[in-house]
């Protein structure tokens, strides 16, 4: 079966960040890095959170020099403990779905000068690759999907992809049919 993934519908997305914060909260609760794994992205063509597509032949997993990224249980996962923060995965990801980050412990005040997220670091803080893990450590699925107030986010399961592709084939028949008809006229 194909890997599952979460994707947003920009026609519904309000850019309200509820998913982003839910993501962060869920991972913090699981003892993982609390940096959010989806990124609200604004463009003149629409706004939506962007996150990992859990590619079947994931380039991030291929380039990882320490095998910290593995494909298992229908998803692409980063082992935060093994990651060395080399950034190769973030660069090869075609969707910009991987960021390098580490969590600011809440007890430490944030540095006054604003810092770029790619370089946000503190002494003693581990900076690793952060990406969507479909909230595999929580019992009720991806938290972003759960909290989205407009239901713009959807979990697409592997078998659902196959069904969608079948539907696409049906509609492509109609398209080809009309093109050939036009040709014949």
């Amino acid at each position: 079966m194909l890997n599952s993934f979460v994707i947003a519908n920009p026609n519904r997305c309000l850019g309200c960040y509820t998913c982003v914060v839910a993501c962060s909260a869920a991972h913090r609760k699981s003892g993982l890095q609390a940096a959010p794994r989806l990124h609200i992205t604004y463009s003149p063509r629409g706004t939506m959170p962007v996150q990992c597509r859990h590619c079947e032949d994931a380039p991030c997993a291929v380039v990882c020099p320490v095998n910290a990224i593995e494909i298992r249980d229908g998803m692409v996962l980063v082992k935060e403990q093994a990651c060395i923060g080399c950034k190769m995965c973030a660069l090869v990801c075609p969707f910009g779905a991987i960021t390098m980050n580490g969590t600011f412990p809440p007890s430490i005040p944030k540095p006054a000068g604003q810092v770029q997220s790619l370089l946000a670091w503190l002494a003693g803080q581990k900076t690793v690759a952060i990406k969507c893990d479909l909230c595999c450590s929580s019992t009720d699925g991806p938290q972003c999907v759960k909290v989205c107030p407009t239901k713009a986010l959807q979990l697409i399961a592997g078998d659902q992809v196959e069904r969608l592709i079948k539907l696409k084939r049906i509609s492509s028949v109609a398209v080809v049919d009309s093109i050939l008809n036009e040709e014949g006229e």
């Binding site: 309000l14 850019g15 309200c16 960040y17 982003v20 914060v21 962060s24 909260a25 609390a34 959010p36 600011f104 809440p106 944030k110 604003q114």
Partner: peptide
């Protein structure tokens, strides 16, 4: 902005919110 509110008295003291909009 959506993740903060007014003068930030409350939301900037809510770590989950301040994290997404720290500046």
């Amino acid at each position: 902005r959506v993740y903060h509110y007014h003068t930030g008295t409350m939301t900037r003291r809510c770590e989950p919110l301040d994290q997404v909009g720290p500046k």
